[in-house]
Design a protein around this nucleic acid. Structure first.
Lengths: 210, 210
DNA sequence: TGGACTAAATGACAATAATCAAGTTGCCTG
DNA sequence: CAGGCAACTTGATTATTGTCATTTAGTCCA
């Protein structure tokens, strides 16, 4: 039932899914590619709020009330997105409250991710945020590994609240924590060591980075 | 029904309502005073995520899944808090899906507030964030007004992602935008002018602040 | 193979915010 | 009213980040 009312679309890189201020009438699920949520401040600055990958959904909380989107969405790669009209999901929710609970759970995940970002911005230095970003990409908890940077450095910088130049310098500092960047791959010598770097006091971290 | 299962408690200033990592079993509604939500980063830094006033609720999204709180909560003034066990609300939601929708709406409000904070941190300078904070306290859209700072400056600084000293200096810079601080009151000469300050380009704002 | 384009790194400098230290100010209490 | 405490302000210095300009490297395509 829900599926029957859903539509499905492809977007090219750079294409806009919706703009902040538009009235929300559907929730979106990324089925392929990457979508970024960003916000333009009145002074013109862009803040990347989140980047969603395959399987993730966004816009739940907004759509239900027909509020205006607080953010804009843009495809950062060619991608496929499923669109579920909010009326369809609302109806489903009325029939099965379990659905309501799982929508809430998903919304909570977003809330949690925003809280994490706030913590990082307020309490960590640039290189520490980069370290944490890399750690989240790792699949293991220890040892060494090589991760692929999921999108270009310009976007990563935005996501971490810094300029591309600063990201570049952060990568340079992380060499002392055993991280080597080559193209869009990052080789991490020792995951534990990198985690320690991201968790130590900023002033200590500074000495280590020298 | 829901109310019959709820409890009600007073907290002294500085008392902890819950700590991050604890399992959530209830949502909280502030009926008097102020409660801050904060998060301690692994490196020891504290990030104030939000400060809630009378009438506001928090913890909805977490409680439903019995997840661990991502943040800690502490009373910043003496306050009264209502506690609704999540089982009670879950049951109510099953009976009346409308409740689910309104819980989602409230969760969305939090989500929106977090997005705003991210935007401010990523795209605005310190003084601009302070200006915006003051504007949110104003009840009018234009003209002049006097607002009362809702909590002490140490906490305001934390909420805005800066050190108390920086807040102090920001206030000093805002004198040029027609803001005068006296004790815990801020007199704003011209709301429009202050808004313009918070919305102009950082580099322009700098010239104006000289 | 050789441009031409783009992404990224680097250097020099300005600007913003943190840190440390020293004053204020107001308030409470004996 | 003096003394002491706590919150806040101010000053001097350092560190981090942003900005602008330039260089390097990689990729595409004829």
């Amino acid at each position: 039932m829900v599926l029957s009312m859903s539509s499905w679309r492809e977007y090219d890189r750079g294409e806009t899914l919706f703009l902040q201020g538009e009235t929300a009438q559907a929730i979106h699920i990324v089925t392929e590619g990457w979508v970024k949520l960003y916000r333009i401040a009145p002074n013109g600055g862009e803040a990347v709020v989140n980047v969603f990958a395959k399987g993730e959904s966004f816009g739940e909380a907004v759509a239900f009330r027909g509020h205006a989107y607080p953010v804009s969405a843009e495809a950062v790669t060619t991608c496929e997105v499923m669109r579920i009209p909010s009326v369809a999901l609302l109806e489903a929710m009325r029939k099965d409250p379990e659905i309501a609970v799982s929508v809430l759970a998903s919304t909570f995940a977003h809330l949690h991710s925003l809280v994490s970002q706030l913590e990082q911005l307020k309490a960590q230095t640039g290189p520490q945020r980069v370290a944490e970003f890399l750690l989240e990409l790792c699949e293991h908890e220890e040892g060494s590994c090589v991760v692929t940077l999921p999108y270009d450095k310009f976007l990563i910088a935005g996501r971490l609240g810094m300029k591309p130049e600063s990201l570049s310098r952060s990568f340079a500092k992380l060499k002392n924590a055993g991280v080597h960047i080559k193209r869009n791959h990052a080789a991490i010598d020792d995951i534990e060591r990198l985690r320690e770097f991201s968790e130590t006091d900023p002033v200590e971290a500074w000495h280590k980075a020298q």
